[in-house]
Nucleic acid binder design. Sequence first.
DNA 1: CTATAAACCTGCTGGC
DNA 2: TGCCAGCAGGTTTATA
Length: 269
Amino acid sequence: MPELPEVETIRRYLNLKLVNECIDNLEVLNESSLRCAKGLSVNDLKNQYIKSVSRRGKYLNIGLEDYNLVIHLKMTGQIYFNPPIPPINHLRWVLTLKSGSKIYFRDVRKFGRLFIYPKDDVKYLLAGEIGPEPWEINLSYWQKKLKSRRSIKTLLLDQKVIAGIGNIYADEALYRAFIHPKKKCLDLTLKQALDLLKEVRTVLDCGIRYGGTSFRDYLGGDGKKGNMQDHLLIYQKTGGLCPRCGERIAKTKVGGRSSHFCPKCQKLD
DNA sequence: CTATAAACCTGCTGGC
DNA sequence: TGCCAGCAGGTTTATA
């Protein structure tokens, strides 16, 4: 469900609420939602203080004294912090703090995961397996990655190349940069490459500013929906009119994901 | 290398 | 009204 802006919105909220709290216990209702590093168990979390709440790409990381709690929400994961009415359906785990505060994790499709790692172990996962944050990318890195025969949308969605972009923001950035999602990376001009990186950042910044995109499941840390869905230009607007040229917005398939674009503004040749 | 499909899961929607 | 194919903010793994 969530891409970088949604995860960042949750991170900012939890960061205000969790730092200096102490863990009482973790109750797991769906075993497959939890992955413990070898030799660890949920009991190890007891009495651990929360030092930080950070993010890498679409991963949320609750830093403890001796461990890291790494969360990936995948398609339908939702975080509820001290909700007025606790969720009942599709509840996968509940983290209780000494203060009495609770974090509920609800996840309809069970794709989401909570990983427990030793403190120093997580560096490997987060630095080695995930590409740079979009704002950290420099031109030489970007040009190097664009020397590829893959389609540009596939590259944008590759978390090893650039962290945090998902289907919504990929379509939005490509539209704003006038680039067809199936365009081969190698065929991009330097200007297109620069424009695209700029629009990726713009669109993600915008998503964060509006508290994320709530199409169906996504909720910010405060339990409220985001507003970015009211500011999208192309995603899920098949059959509607392009806000720039009036052409009908089309849909195609790229890398198995539905991709929305304007056939007139985003030419393939 | 690149692309596609299937898996992992459940629920909702739209067409017939 | 009812059924069913198809689809969904993601990632990984197998197959062509």
